[in-house]
Design a protein around this nucleic acid. Structure first.
Lengths: 134, 134
DNA sequence: CGGTATCCTTTACGATACTG
DNA sequence: CAGTATCGTAAAGGATACCG
């Protein structure tokens, strides 16, 4: 069985017992999905290479994986045109777009609190008696 | 050098170039942090074992790691009492509590859209010509 | 009780090469 | 162009045992 056909499994299965938002976090905030959705939302419908160029550090393999996952979850559509050379376009769906207010909220929280986090880290790290998180 | 003293590094470094909320996501939505913050917010100040019992599947090692990280980021305080047997209490900070509206937004999004996601998955998986995400 | 230490497995990810 | 195949690595996480 090839790697690509291996059935996808969520990274976290049980913590949702203690935390009702865990399923949402699994869908929306698994690695690379946030930049992909953001770029799709920001720059509109675009091709595979455009996505790859905007998310500079992602490899084609991983980009494909995440796009498939987002497509499966109904966040993104994939449109293939019968042309040579091939042209495939990705676009965010209404479901994906419905996350926009949440993303805006996160951006706002970051603008207001990120420096607090960094100062907390500096304070913590300055104390030699405290262990650093592993 | 022990495992616990290995310096922590963020899981994602560069995607923030394409996505301004990536730094926030790194801090707030790395694995296990959401259930921990949720439980601390929901049940208030509590001891290590209480946390462990409520987040049923987490191991003590990982719980310690994530609590250290949250403490370093200023989301959680750790209070150690000079008693025998030892008593340590964890409490969410104001900074941690400031995430509450965001978490509520995520919960609301889930309530409204999670079934859409599941239906999208079912539809996607029902089509045998589509590859499953790897 | 509140963790650490050690070992081990998983899985995600990156690099590279290749193809319809 | 839009991926897929293959290989290799590294970090995160789980299991278990142990300690002050």
């Amino acid at each position: 069985m090839t790697e690509a056909s291996t059935r996808w499994r969520p990274a976290v299965a049980e913590p949702e017992l203690a935390c009702p938002i865990a399923p949402v976090v699994d869908i929306v905030f698994s690695r690379w999905t946030t930049p992909i959705l953001w770029v799709l939302h920001e720059y509109g419908r675009q091709r595979f290479v455009e996505l790859a160029r905007r998310i500079t550090t992602i490899t084609p393999k991983v980009l494909t994986q995440r796009l498939r996952q987002l497509e499966r979850d109904g966040m993104v559509t994939r449109t293939q045109h019968a042309e040579v050379p091939p042209r495939v376009e990705y676009e965010i769906t209404d479901l994906g777009r419905s996350l926009a207010p949440l993303f805006a909220g996160l951006a706002e929280w970051g603008a207001e609190n990120l420096d607090r986090v960094h100062r907390a880290r500096a304070t913590y790290d300055a104390d030699p008696t405290r262990p650093l998180p592993g």
